[in-house]
Computed example of a mutant assay.
Amino acid sequence: MREKLHHYAHLVRLDRPIGIYLLLWPTLWALWIAAEGVPDFTILLVFIAGVVLMRSAGCAINDYADRNVDPHVARTKTRPLAAGLITPQEALGVFAALSISALLLALLLNSLTIALSIVAVVLAATYPFMKRFHHLPQVHLGAAFAWAIPMAFTAVTGVMPPLVAWLLFLAAVLWTTAYDTMYAMCDRDDDVKIGVKSSAILFGQHDRLIIGILQLCTLLLLAGVGILSGLGMSYWLGLLVAVGFSIYQQWLIRHREPMPSLHAFLNNHWLGMAVFLGIAVDYASKADSVTIGAFMTLLSLHYV
């Protein structure tokens, strides 16, 4: 049983939490902006746990979908399902258990968020199969990862997400498409041989240019979010750091080599963190200003 649990942990990539981080940061962006500061603690815990569960479920269904492909790719041939350490039925069972757990967790939220959570499961379940049908499965992954944003707004506000939420959603979709294309560049040669489709194959020699355009659009949309949300200097400093990371990622993929492309993909964890810290610090500073202002008002009234 211990050995099986070890294989299940590898199946859902608990040893490689980068996917959790990349799903977590946009979720936290949305929660903080929706709440205009620190969100309700229960909602925050539900979303953090949901991120871990849904990313893990996505890994399980991804390996099931790629069970006949992964053994032929150098980077993935040692995964538990590809190596024959667990069965396809077990992978499906893990996906089902994690997805049901995430849906049960969503029952702690309001009815609108529960309805949106069903869409999240559908997106996560269908993404791995898209690479058989079209060259932009990365966009589908972007929608799956970004769907936590409208869910976060409905969880906090109880109403349909406003314009700023959908701008943030679009920014997350484009950002995910950009960094997952970097990831796809690592397997491009193997994918061409096997017949698997990806944005890296579709973009071809224009991959760096298109990734750069996606990065620029992401940053512009995040700037729009900052303006509409009335975010201040801390946010803009965080966004400036994100610009620096984007430029660094372009430098890493300049020769289109697998390992530097993988490092560029991994670097997006820090980009997402920089944006979140900018949001969190900005709202925290505003809260401090309000607290100080209220204290001074009460003090003046006392002396009057």
Rank of each mutant, 00 (worst) to 15 (best):
L5K: 05
Y8W: 13
Y8F: 15
V12L: 06
I18W: 10
I18F: 10
I18N: 07
Y21N: 05
L23A: 12
A30F: 02
I33P: 00
I33N: 05
V38F: 15
P39C: 11
F41C: 08
F41R: 10
I43Y: 05
L44H: 04
F47W: 12
I48A: 14
A49R: 03
R55C: 09
D63C: 05
D63F: 02
Y64E: 00
A65E: 00
D66Q: 09
N68Y: 12
V69M: 11
A74S: 13
P80N: 11
P88W: 08
G93A: 01
V94C: 00
A97L: 13
I100F: 09
L104Q: 03
L105E: 11
L107E: 12
L109C: 02
L112W: 02
L116F: 15
V122Q: 00
T126G: 06
F133A: 10
L136Y: 13
V139Y: 05
A144P: 08
I149A: 02
P150G: 03
M151S: 00
V156W: 04
G158A: 06
M160D: 04
M160I: 09
P161Q: 02
L167Q: 09
L170K: 03
A171F: 09
A171R: 07
W175Y: 03
W175F: 02
W175P: 07
T176A: 14
T176F: 13
A178S: 06
M182Y: 04
C186S: 05
D187M: 10
D187T: 11
R188Q: 14
V192C: 00
I194T: 07
A200M: 07
A200G: 03
G204T: 08
R208M: 06
R208V: 10
I213C: 09
C217G: 06
L221H: 11
L222A: 11
V225C: 13
L231R: 00
M233V: 10
S234H: 11
A242W: 03
S246Q: 04
Y248T: 01
Y248Q: 09
L252F: 02
R256E: 10
P258Y: 01
L262Q: 12
L266D: 07
G272S: 06
M273N: 11
M273K: 09
A274Q: 01
V275I: 15
L277D: 06
D282N: 13
A284K: 10
A284D: 08
S289A: 15
F295G: 05
M296A: 14
L298N: 14
